[in-house]
Amino acid sequence: MKMIFGRPLGLTETLQRYCPGCGHGIVHRIIGELLVKLDIRERTIGIAPVGCSVFADEYFNCDMIQPPHGRGPAIATGLKRTRPECIVFSYQGDGDLAAMGTAEIIHAAARSENITVIFINNAIFGMTGGQMAPTTLPGMKSTTSVKGRDIGKQGFPIKVCEMLASLDGPYYLERCAVDTPRNVIRTEKALKTAFANQISNKGFSMVEILSMCPTGWGQTPVQAKKWLGEVMAEYYPLGVFRDLSKEEK
């Protein structure tokens, strides 16, 4: 018998320290598969974020670098500009990309750096203990918005895909989710496109992925995936926000 599904070579053997039901692992698996499928593992440099997936540098079976919080797109710029033959991806959470690193992501997108950004949006700060993120929904509870995010005092969430789509720079922007097998398959396609764009020197590609954080949300994994589909995806609609390949045709 032949294995048709299983741990991809693009991941190390190290077991992941994420909580049960955390969406990071699903996305890791997809990236790990793509590194092999696209035959880029041996020329890829991955960038871990600061946050729960700070340990991503132990999980991806390729060269990795661990930058300061939010600075992934700047590091990616330095790497890609000096080693254009390499494939550079920046893996970032919502604190990393949409709070600390807002300037870095906007300007990397505006310059259309030829990199791939994977943005995990779980609407919460996981690693530090469930505090409010820039993507926390209005009314959503966190340890720093215990009665629910008060938009009068704590402002509105940032919709990153919509924001970056206002720039001319990005080549490809899509928002996906990993709550159902169907959505996971769509995420696989989006990430494949995002890497393929870089391979053919198209410029900046980002895939935003709505992802479960059962621990941070105070839910069971099964509750979390339901909440993602029913509530979160309502606020953050899935879909393609930019795809210049369509215009090229």
Binding site: F5, Y18, G25, V184
Partner: peptide, 13 residues
């Protein structure tokens, strides 16, 4: 397999 975060599932055929 696709929904498994670990992944702790292998499928053979």
């Amino acid at each position: 397999f696709k929904i498994c975060p670990e992944p702790a599932i292998e499928i053979y055929k």
